[in-house]
């Protein structure tokens, strides 16, 4: 299986994951969306040196991954291209912030190191939560939920089309790459001299395909609204999940739970 086919298969696998039947899959999309957004806000709002306070928030994705029956490794595997980028964000901090905060044995730990770790964790946690949402909720339901939150229709449609379109674009790239490879034997990849025309052609083909796909949606009554999704009414368990998560995140943000637990055990 070549790289492009693999990428396409992985994309379809996401749709498969989202169709699971676990209790997390069964929750109302709006509740999951709101909790994910609130989780990310909470994670991002932690001060740069509050590494220990932030650590407790790993429990949310880890526990939910277990309940949703999705191995955490799947998340890291699917996000293998993005994770290094997210982690790279804090790499300069140790050079900029050399203030020593503590010693582990005789090893000085600078503010830069702590803030780097905090920044990396914030990125990783946010990605894990976002992946969890996508892996437990079909994209149409996410878009419908966004619509309920009054996110402009143009954005939700754009999100849906982009997601639906990625597969077609990968197929276009695969066809073009194969055609190139067949006439460039012995070459690995695409020579940089052909990049311009390759990308230009891809853009033109993509526009044609996108237009066809959108036409096909319009012809079947799509007017930017997600009538076909039909969001269910929120039930007690959805409210419980939403409010419970909110309370836990607020508690985690306002009290240093690891420190509190630690002090209880140290007494």
């Amino acid at each position: 299986m070549n790289k492009l086919t693999k990428a396409q298969t992985e994309l379809w696998e996401m749709d498969e994951l989202a169709k699971g039947t676990s209790p997390i899959h069964g929750l109302h999309p709006l509740a999951k969306l709101a909790v994910t957004v609130f989780y990310i806000f909470t994670v991002v709002s932690f001060p740069k040196y509050d590494l220990s306070g932030l650590m407790i928030l790993v429990l949310y994705p880890v526990i939910l991954y277990q309940i949703a029956d999705i191995p955490v490794s799947t998340c890291f595997y699917k996000l293998r291209l993005v994770l290094p980028l997210v982690c790279a964000v804090g790499l300069v901090n140790p050079f900029l912030d050399r203030k020593i905060l503590l010693y582990i044995g005789t090893v000085p730990i600078t503010g830069g190191l702590v803030s780097m770790a905090t920044l990396m964790l914030k990125g990783v946690f946010s990605l894990m939560a976002s992946f969890l949402l996508i892996a437990t909720t079909p994209i149409d339901q996410i878009c419908a939920a966004l619509g309920k939150l009054h996110v402009p229709q143009v954005l939700t449609t754009l999100l849906l089309l982009t997601y639906r379109y990625i597969g077609l674009m990968i197929r276009e790239v695969a066809v073009m790459s194969e055609s190139y490879a067949l006439r460039a034997p012995g070459q690995k990849g695409i020579h940089f001299s052909a990049w311009g025309s390759f990308l230009g052609q891809l853009l033109l083909r993509s526009m044609d395909r996108a237009e066809e796909l959108y036409s096909s949606m319009l012809l079947r009554g799509f007017r930017g609204e997600f009538y076909y999704v039909g969001l269910p009414k929120a039930r007690g368990k959805d409210w419980l999940f939403f409010l419970g998560s909110l309370l836990l995140f607020l508690a985690a943000r306002n009290t240093n739970l690891p420190e509190l637990l630690g002090s209880l055990f140290m007494r």
């Binding site: 639906r164 077609l168 096909s216």
Partner: peptide, 13 residues
């Protein structure tokens, strides 16, 4: 309308 290219018509999973 049945499009010429079914890939463009079948966009749901």
């Amino acid at each position: 309308f049945v499009l010429q290219d079914s890939d463009n018509q079948m966009f749901m999973p």
